[in-house]
């Protein structure tokens, strides 16, 4: 690989900076911004997802959307740092995949755990300041959702709650990334209705499927350090069954929402087409270490539904 020597050189010359970069998980930050854009796009499509349609052409819309994106980034970085810090033991034991929960940055650089602990505290403080600044420019319900994301995200990894170690991690992660994050995008520019929450349920369920797949290769390392994820607790058969239930649930909810005209046809079609990739995910789940099929399904769904919502909002 061409990038590998550059990466190694950067890691050796500036280990702290490289660790901060790698532990922030840039690819996941990009996905977070995409899901945020999904929420903003939902708001552009107008009722019944939101009370009043967002005026996409206005300066206030653009400023709010930008402020919302800037506010959520440090929150996401703080959550990732906390997760990296909490996953040091797992990272040391597992044979990593590109989608393992930790970046393995500390393991690779030999830096102490204390470095990431301090980074977590620092970025959390920055996030707090960001939330305060956001409160001056964004609607209060958006600030509330952002605070909920920060608290639940930290609680996902860190003691005393450490939800991931109690078998609740998958649920919290799916709700955080699949529900709260797009809803945050909606609330930044408009007032959501209950239908906005329902409209992202298929995405929540697909995030759940994705978590089964990405946790699977880490299950032995997770079990060794006492991290009781669902794939550690359940048999492969049970995991596959749960994955199928979530996938079929996503199809049923999407079909229902479409039939009830709660989501536009473009969104319904984009979602159902993306969900078909879950069949590939299901056939490989627990049979191969690589979780790529499920990751592809989630990312394609995020991209396709974001494009569809924006197209409905900006289109005829």
């Amino acid at each position: 690989m061409i990038g590998e020597p550059i990466r190694v050189r950067l890691r050796e010359r500036t280990p702290r900076l490289w660790t901060l970069w790698a532990a922030s998980r840039p690819s996941q930050l990009a996905l977070i911004l995409l899901v945020y854009a999904l929420g903003v796009g939902m708001a552009t499509a107008g009722p019944p997802v939101v009370v009043d349609g967002a005026d996409v052409g206005s300066t206030s819309f653009r400023l709010s959307a930008l402020a919302g994106a800037l506010a959520v980034l440090p929150v996401a970085v703080a959550i990732h740092y906390a997760n990296e810090y909490a996953d040091i033991e797992t990272d040391a034991l597992t044979e990593r995949t590109p989608f393992s929960s930790g970046s393995g940055a500390l393991e690779a650089t030999g830096l102490s755990a204390g470095f990431l602990r301090r980074a977590t505290v620092g970025v959390t403080v920055v996030s707090g300041c960001g939330v305060v600044l956001a409160a001056a420019t964004l609607p209060l319900d958006a600030v509330g959702v952002l605070v909920a994301i920060l608290l639940a995200g930290l609680g996902y990894s860190l003691p005393p709650v450490a939800l991931i170690r109690r078998g609740l991690g998958e649920f919290v992660n799916a709700v955080l990334g699949g529900l709260l994050l797009p809803l945050y995008g909606v609330t930044v520019v408009a007032t959501p209705t209950g239908i906005a929450g329902l409209a992202v349920v298929p995405f929540v369920l697909v995030v759940g499927c994705n978590l089964f797949a990405t946790h699977w290769p880490d299950r032995e390392a997770d079990a060794a350090v006492g991290k009781r994820t669902l794939v550690v607790r359940w048999s492969p058969r049970g995991i596959r069954r749960a994955y199928a239930v979530l996938g079929l649930g996503a199809v049923a909810v999407t079909t229902g929402l479409w039939a009830a005209a709660a989501v536009p046809t473009a969104v319904g079609v984009a979602t159902l087409a993306s969900l078909s990739i879950l069949v590939w995910g299901w056939t490989t789940l627990t049979r191969q270490r690589d979780p790529s099929p499920s990751v592809v399904a989630m990312v394609v769904l995020a991209v396709a539904s974001t494009v569809a919502w924006w197209w409905v909002g900006l289109g005829p």
Binding site: A45, G46, P47, P48, D52, G53, A261, P264, T265, V312
Partner: peptide
């Protein structure tokens, strides 16, 4: 009419 996709679809 506030919800364009519904207006055109009913």
């Amino acid at each position: 009419f506030d919800s364009r996709w519904r207006f055109f679809r009913v």
